[in-house]
Simulated scan of single mutants.
Amino acid sequence: MSDIVVIGAGQAGAALVAKLRALGHSGSLTLIGAEQSPPYQRPPLSKAYLLGEMEETRLWLRNPAFYAEAGIDLRLGQPVTAIDRTARTVTVDGQTVHYDQLALTTGSVPRRLPDAAGGALAGVHVVRTLADVDAMRKEFAAGRRLVVIGGGYVGLEAAAVAAKLGLQVTVVEMAPRILQRVAAPETSDWVRALHTAHGVRIIEGMALDRLVGEGRVQAARLADGTELPTDFVIAGVGILPATALAEAAGLALDNGIAVDAQGRTSDPAIWAAGDCTSFPWQGGRLRLESVQNAIDQAELVAANMLGAGQDYRPMPWFWSDQYDMKLQIAGLNLGYDRVVTRGPEGGAVSFWYFRGDALLAVDAMNDPRAYMVGKRLIEAGHSPAPAQVSDLSVPLKALL
């Protein structure tokens, strides 16, 4: 029997320890988290939880009693301060905990606006943890003014919540268009029109100069000198892999904690999974920020810690809820050279990404059938003819 310690009590950490027990690991198992709450799902934070439609207990991935019943030592509110790879111990709450195998599921941390740009002013928020959202919920009162810095999915989801609650919302995106890093212009256009229809002002191709205020933010000054008066600000400018602990321990990093195809780090006794890792993919390295990747990679690492010897083959999918639109994404659009549109039909439309004749990904807006068909095609490695995709007289099932 071996002692296994998992650092990071988020989606990946919770999935990893549960899978270890399900696969028969009978040794000691410790899950350590820096937050006070038991492992919880993060996607609803910027949607249902922020809207007040979901209680904290509904965010929990499992009832806290599960961990005790499974013989998992769950330590919350206790950040790990050091890893001693020679002694095979971690330091937490002034004590050392021994491991035979260690897994890092430390997730990611939000990028913050620099202090020099006003990032330290009161009323400037990020969206990552329960504590982050609890701190900003009181700001969401009808008639107040919100500036969102960053037109990615998290920023746009928060903007949608604010608009639904009657706030005056402006989104400022430095890139030429919202969602530029993750989506085609067609998806950006659809989402922009949706927000505009709900009264959100979107400013693209404009950098933030700095936030202005005495102690508390009062305005956002843009690069062209325009000042946007505001009552509070949400910075949705991306996330970074949480690698500080791994770096201090001397583990190899490469856009995250570098792992091999099986999830092993540069130390054979240490594994990693989830947002914090980059893994081999198509001759390079890939880091995925998604619930699906956190669960699938963590469960594979659990199996490999017990000797399965399996390589990770990601089957990515993502989603975003904004107003009454559910955007579902299958696959990865990296390297696409063509986008084929199916629809709109009713309130549904989908955008299909191709590289040559190969289908890479699908963005489906309020179109679960297109999402499911696209997902099945991508996972099977099959590509429909682009002309058939765009032809609404061809049933989606026929594409299979």
Rank of each mutant, 00 (worst) to 15 (best):
I203D: 06
R62V: 06
S278A: 14
L16I: 01
V291F: 11
E35K: 00
G150E: 04
V171F: 04
S2D: 13
I329Y: 07
A272T: 04
A160S: 15
T89H: 08
R128H: 15
A184N: 03
Y323T: 09
V394D: 10
L102F: 07
A87N: 14
N366R: 08
D100Q: 10
A219P: 08
V182A: 07
M1S: 15
R85K: 14
D267S: 10
W319T: 08
E173F: 02
F66I: 07
L399I: 05
T89S: 13
Q180M: 14
L121K: 01
G150K: 01
N304Q: 09
L20Y: 06
S108R: 02
G356D: 06
A261F: 09
G374Y: 04
L121F: 11
T170E: 11
L45P: 08
D84K: 07
D224A: 05
T129G: 01
W317V: 05
G94Q: 14
R376F: 04
T129C: 10
G274T: 02
L208D: 05
K138I: 02
S393G: 13
L31M: 10
R62C: 09
G52I: 11
R128S: 11
P280D: 11
P280W: 07
S28Y: 09
Q36N: 14
R75M: 11
L377Y: 11
V349R: 11
R285N: 10
R145E: 15
A364E: 05
P39N: 03
L360G: 03
L208A: 01
L399E: 00
G331R: 02
L121V: 08
G307I: 06
V259L: 03
I378D: 02
L146R: 04
R128D: 11
D134K: 13
S390M: 12
V97N: 02
T196Q: 15
A65V: 13
D3Y: 03
K47Y: 00
L16G: 00
